[in-house]
């Protein structure tokens, strides 16, 4: 049954990937693709939290920190170097290293879940205020001015590796982002199917039992956190390249909470749920913002109430439960 569900999920993911990478660029205008690119970037960020929280059991408010740091690292490096290959790699590596540094103290000191959430949130807010206080010409790294709350404008785009004159923008950036999303999603699915991934899930299910079986939970959690930090950093790189801009707002509490909401709406413990929840929430927010029909927060709040009442575990698990119930009804009483 599980194998059948896995195959169905894989097929659905494959179809969704083909639609995203092949069909949408062929049938939509560039401005639509430009808008969709942002949704897909956020979906990559949502996947990082789905991995860290939904599978690793680590409630991290720090994904926005790694996202923002990825964006800032890319922006500073690409402004200085003028070519994006190394800055992209740095935008993944630096957040991953920070995740490793933070994770070492969190997991080796056996910080419990609630404190871990608070510490990661505090780290995010420290960066918010720290970067926010960097206005003025004295706050520069090389030729890149940090700009305080105004952020860094005019961030050069990602280019074809080794060819700064060939930028990847608009439709091309959309395709690149869709491919990155597919790779991250597929990579995480593959990772979950490995022995390492099985242990990750086991730790989420019962950390003490995993330890008593001989698994060093600290190293596994550190690995989960570093991978999640790197993915969030990659999303930050794409974000800075997409808008040619990055500001301390990416470290803000509002944005941090938003990532949690995406994952909860889609369904904790699923990868597809994070992508669906993120795209759905962002689409609704964008539409409400443009149409000005009602207050965005009010409508979203009402939506969450309905979700909690009818699909407590989120949309994807709720849908799975519904399908299973229909299947059982179809079989009839035995």
């Amino acid at each position: 049954m599980n194998r059948l569900r896995d195959r169905a999920g894989l097929l659905a993911a494959g179809v969704a990937g083909a639609v995203l990478i092949v069909v949408i660029p062929a049938v939509t205008e560039v401005y639509v693709q430009f808008e969709l690119t942002l949704f897909l970037i956020f979906a990559i960020l949502a996947l990082s939290l789905a991995w860290v929280w939904g599978f690793g059991g680590i409630l991290s408010f720090g994904q926005s920190l790694f996202f923002g740091l990825g964006g800032y690292t890319f922006a500073v490096a690409v402004i200085n170097l003028g070519e994006s290959t190394l800055p992209v790699l740095l935008g993944i590596l630096v957040p991953a290293l920070l995740a490793g540094f933070l994770g070492y103290f969190l997991f080796w000191r056996r910080i419990s879940d609630v404190y871990l959430a608070v510490i990661t949130l505090a780290a995010s807010l420290i960066f918010y205020y720290l970067i926010g206080a960097s206005a003025g010409s004295q706050y520069r790294i090389g030729t890149a001015l940090l700009g305080g709350y105004n952020g860094i404008p005019s961030v050069p785009p990602i280019n074809v590796p080794g060819a700064p004159a060939q930028p990847v923008v608009y439709g091309d950036l959309y395709v690149l982002t869709a491919i990155v999303l597919a790779i991250v999603y597929g990579g995480l699915r593959w990772l979950l199917a490995t022995d390492f991934g099985r242990v990750v899930v086991a730790i989420r299910e019962n950390e003490e039992r995993a330890q008593l079986l001989g698994y060093d939970v600290r190293t596994r959690k550190l690995a989960i956190f570093v991978i999640g930090g790197g993915i969030a950093g990659l999303a930050g790189v794409l974000f800075a390249a997409w808008g040619a801009y990055v500001s301390p707002n990416v470290f803000s509490m509002t944005f941090t909470a938003q990532i949690i909401v995406w994952v909860l709406v889609g369904g904790l413990g699923t990868l597809s749920g994070a992508v669906i929840g993120c795209v759905l929430v962002q689409a609704v927010m964008t539409w409400l913002g443009e149409a000005k029909l009602a207050d965005t927060n009010l409508v979203l709040g009402a939506g969450f109430v309905v979700l909690v009442l009818f699909a407590r575990r989120g949309l994807v698990p709720g849908l799975r439960d519904l399908l299973a119930r229909i299947r059982r009804l179809g079989r009839g009483p035995r």
């Binding site: 099985r198 899930v201 086991a202 039992r209 995993a210």
Partner: peptide, 14 residues
Amino acid sequence: ALFDGLSVLENVRL
């Protein structure tokens, strides 16, 4: 102390 969300087989395999 078990991995409640996993199958019996998966529990033992771990």
